[in-house]
Simulated scan of single mutants.
Amino acid sequence: MTTFSRRGLHGHVVDVLGRRIMRGELVSGDIIDPDALLTEFQVSRTVVREAIKVLTTKGLVDARPRLGTYVTPRERWQLLDSDVMTWRSEGVPDPLLVLELSEVRQVLEPAAARLAAVRRSDEQCAEIEAAMVDLAATFENTEVESHVKADLAFHRAILAASGNELLARFEVVLEPALHARDELAFAHETTTQFLDEHRAVVTAIVARDAEAAGTAMKILMDQSNRDSETIVSKDAAGAELVSNRKPAL
């Protein structure tokens, strides 16, 4: 996805600094010297000022008299901002993001599936079925990007069919994080089980069976959460992170 931070000269500065903060190259309390940015990026003071303003709105930096511009504590970051989500999910995805995404999906997506079963139009139902066909087709090869795209399309179609604008718009936040999770999980998923669980959701929505749709999506999300925990637990730090987040939903 193309985010605001990717546009223009000041957008480039925002993008680079945002990535550095997300990767821990700049940590809470670190001072950001505007003059150093002028030299590094070869841009005007106006560009640097605008970039700092954008990062401030995202909660990543702030300024104090006699201290200057500094990186803020994590609790002030706008974690639902689409740029922040993208920075966290690119490269080696943030394991905490993967786990938290799984928890959010366990809460939201079964409810969205229940609503979609009741509220979906014939056109939306056709879109969900088409997305299922495309998703199944990705298992004919091992190309991760096509799988990620199809999986995102499937879940976006259900969110849209829920008839709830807030749920539908939430896909803007979920997209980069889902992308990260799917890239990690693709090699670990069992094709038959993965597809059968998705098809069960589609069947229930087509039949307008809200209870079955919610149950099927919960099964799918619970499996997704287990997959995420398995992947994140590959190293000691990840295993500790998973253990500290018990009990699961």
Rank of each mutant, 00 (worst) to 15 (best):
T2V: 15
T2A: 14
R7I: 15
G8V: 08
H10I: 01
H10N: 09
G11H: 05
V13G: 04
V14G: 00
R20N: 10
I21V: 14
E25C: 06
V27P: 00
S28M: 04
I31K: 08
I32R: 02
D35R: 10
E40H: 07
V43E: 11
T46V: 13
V48S: 08
R49W: 06
E50N: 14
E50L: 14
K53A: 15
K53G: 12
L55S: 03
T57D: 14
T57F: 04
G59T: 03
D62W: 03
R64S: 07
R66Y: 10
R66T: 11
Y70R: 02
V71A: 02
R76T: 13
D81H: 13
D81G: 13
S82W: 12
D83W: 02
R88T: 05
E90P: 00
P95L: 05
L96Y: 12
L97N: 09
L97E: 12
L101D: 07
S102I: 03
E103F: 07
R105S: 11
A111M: 13
A112R: 02
A112I: 11
A112E: 09
L115M: 15
L115T: 09
R120M: 10
C125D: 15
C125R: 15
A130N: 14
M132P: 08
V133K: 13
D134C: 07
A136H: 12
A136S: 15
T138I: 09
F139A: 03
F139Y: 10
N141W: 03
V144H: 02
V144C: 04
S146P: 08
H147E: 06
K149H: 12
A150H: 03
D151R: 05
D151L: 02
A153N: 12
A157S: 10
A160Y: 05
E165C: 07
L167E: 07
L167C: 05
R169A: 14
F170V: 07
E175K: 03
H179P: 00
H179T: 13
A180L: 01
L184H: 04
F186A: 09
T190I: 07
L195A: 08
E197G: 04
A200W: 01
V201E: 01
V202F: 05
A207L: 05
A212P: 00
A213N: 00
A213H: 00
M217Y: 01
K218F: 09
K218P: 00
I219N: 09
L220S: 11
M221W: 01
Q223F: 11
S224W: 02
N225P: 00
D227A: 06
E229P: 05
T230Y: 05
T230C: 10
T230G: 08
T230H: 13
T230V: 11
K234Y: 06
A239K: 11
E240N: 13
L241W: 04
L241E: 15
S243Q: 14
S243M: 14
R245Y: 15
A248K: 11
A248I: 09
